Amino acid sequence: MPVESDEELREILELETIVVVGCSATPGKAAHGVPKFMRDHGYEIIPVNPYADEIFGKVPYDSLSEVDEDVDIVDVFRPSEEVSDIADEAIERDDADVVWTQQGIRDREAGERVEAAGKQYVEDRCLKVEYQRLMT
């Protein structure tokens, strides 16, 4: 089952490094505003977007599997039908302990694979909303 309890969500939100798959370079889009908010609140944001040249002063990675840095949370800002492949990339990583899909993004089967690999899965929740609700 995806993470539901506030206690577990708080623990996740105490982690520091978030790789954002589908991070947008376009202000006004949620895929830009949410990571910017998290960055402004002390999180390390690692953008993944094969079409952008720069996001938050960084060159984004083309895919999750190319990310060199250690990451805690894989935040998914891609359509639900892309979650499965992203989840598989996250499962392959030793460092990513959490796969988090933003509001409206769901893939129960991918979530079950993430959990079977010993990682946490948060589905259909906004990082910013949960941060504001639980951490402020």
Rank of each mutant, 00 (worst) to 15 (best):
G42S: 08
P27N: 02
P35V: 00
G33T: 15
L13V: 03
E7Q: 14
D40Y: 00
A110E: 09
G42E: 07
V21G: 04
A110Q: 09
R108I: 15
C126S: 05
E54K: 14
E11C: 01
P47S: 10
Y131E: 02
Q102R: 00
W100N: 05
T136F: 00
E8P: 09
G42Q: 09
A52C: 08
E130K: 08
D68G: 00
A25T: 00
S80E: 04
E82R: 10
Y51H: 15
D75R: 06
E11I: 00
I12E: 14
V67Q: 03
R108Q: 14
G22Y: 06
L127I: 10
I18V: 15
R108G: 02
I86A: 00
V99T: 03
I73L: 03
E130D: 07
K119A: 09
V83G: 12
V83T: 12
E81S: 13
K29N: 15
L9F: 09
P2K: 12
D107M: 09
V19S: 11
R78S: 05
D75M: 04
D40H: 04
R39L: 15
G104W: 08
I46P: 04
A90V: 04
C126D: 02
P35E: 04
G33H: 07
W100P: 05
Y131K: 05
E11R: 15
Q103M: 15
A116R: 14
Q120K: 15
D70T: 10
G104Y: 13
K58I: 07
I91P: 00
I55T: 08
V76S: 11
V3G: 13
L15W: 13
I45Y: 06
D72F: 13
V74E: 06
E109V: 15
V71I: 07
R108L: 12
V129N: 07
Y121N: 10
R125Q: 12
V74A: 11
Y121P: 07
A116P: 00
V20Q: 02
S65C: 08
D72R: 12
G118F: 07
R133P: 12
G22E: 07
R78Q: 06
D95W: 09
D40C: 00
P27M: 03
C126V: 08
D70P: 02
I86G: 02
T136P: 03
E115W: 01
I55E: 04
A96L: 04
K36F: 06
P35L: 05
L64N: 07
D124A: 10
Y131W: 15
P60M: 13
V59T: 15
D85P: 00
V98D: 05
I86T: 05
I12Y: 13
N49K: 05
V71T: 02
D88Q: 14
E92I: 01
D107Q: 05
